[in-house]
């Protein structure tokens, strides 16, 4: 057996190792490093164990922000997913209007986050903003700077404006991939419009809907820029989401230890919830183990 031992081949994986190390491992480990240490300044660190984690997990501030995040993601999914499906169903499937619609739908997705924030910050102002002034002109007491509910409505509407088209485009892609024969068969079977949606379109969109839900959940759970620009987390703490709180803690207060612990907890929550979503959604409607029993 003449097996060639050439350990120089290991150098071929070196570029990948370096890239992964710098892009993921080292930054993450830095955070881990901070999260288990404390300092009194002068770059003097000492071991703090899991103290920061306990602190964060038991702090009301963290709980409040987490609950705000969960409510926000819940509202976003509850609005954007059905709305996106409706928009996709209403989009034309053939003809010149297809490209017009696609371009229009893609536009909001191309605008940078902070620009979206700025647009809505101005748009919703009651003195000079078109939307704010109109609403105020209708006699509705609306002020997103002072009223927590108004601030929430503004942030939610902004996110719906920004991201519904992503859901719609994904659903549209799922819809146009359904072969005509399905619709023809449904016609021949005498299916109603609702039955066509329930038994053909929805199941065939399942895959892309899973992606849409995951993307929208992760993005909305990590939302930072737009509410930061529009409300700055206010009024009070009413729109302070985890990410905004995290930045306040890490950059504003320079509490590196708690901020690092919070980052890790935040990261693990997103990971966990995404995994739960994925598992649940791939299992819903999946075929159970083939039965071979003689049950009729």
């Amino acid at each position: 057996m003449d097996k060639t031992f050439n350990n120089r081949a290991w150098f071929l994986v070196l570029p990948v190792l370096v890239i992964v190390a710098f892009s993921a491992v080292i930054p993450l480990m830095t955070v881990v490093n901070y999260s288990v240490q404390d300092t009194f300044g002068n770059n003097q660190f000492f071991w703090a164990g899991t103290d920061w984690f306990t602190d964060i997990l038991t702090s009301a501030r963290f709980h409040d922000a987490l609950i705000r995040n969960l409510i926000f993601s819940g509202i976003i999914l509850a609005i954007e997913i059905p709305l996106g499906i409706l928009v996709a169903l209403a989009m034309p499937k053939k003809g010149v209007w297809v490209s017009v619609c696609l371009v229009l739908m893609a536009l909001p997705l191309l605008i940078p986050w902070n620009v979206v924030g700025t647009i809505w910050q101005v748009f919703a102002r009651t003195d000079i903003g078109l939307l704010g002034a109109t609403v105020a002109g209708l006699g509705i007491d609306y002020n997103y700077v002072q009223d927590p509910l108004d601030a929430w409505i503004t942030v939610v509407v902004m996110d719906v404006w920004h991201w519904t088209s992503l859901v719609a485009l994904l659903c549209y892609a799922g819809l146009v991939s359904i072969p005509d024969a399905y619709y023809q068969a449904a016609k021949i079977d005498g299916a109603s419009r609702l039955a066509v949606f329930r038994y053909i379109q929805l199941p065939k969109m399942g895959r892309v809907l899973l992606i849409a839900v995951l993307l929208r959940f992760m993005d909305s759970f990590m939302i930072y820029t737009e509410p930061f620009v529009v409300t700055g987390g206010g009024p009070g703490n009413s729109t302070t989401f985890l990410s905004i709180d995290l930045v306040k803690m890490a950059v504003g207060q320079f509490d590196l230890g708690p901020a690092a612990a919070m980052s890790l907890i935040y990261f693990l929550i997103i990971l966990l919830l995404s995994w739960v979503f994925y598992t649940v959604m791939t299992n819903v409607g999946a075929d159970k183990a083939p039965r071979t029993g003689g049950e009729a």
Binding site: P179, A181, Y182, Q184, A185, K187, I188, D189, G190, Y199, I200, P203, K204, G285
Partner: peptide
């Protein structure tokens, strides 16, 4: 088609997945 009361079987099997 439903008013004609006709059945058609297509080239690719059409079943309702769920």
């Amino acid at each position: 088609p439903e008013a004609r009361n006709i059945a058609q079987v297509f080239q690719f099997p059409v079943i309702y997945d769920t």
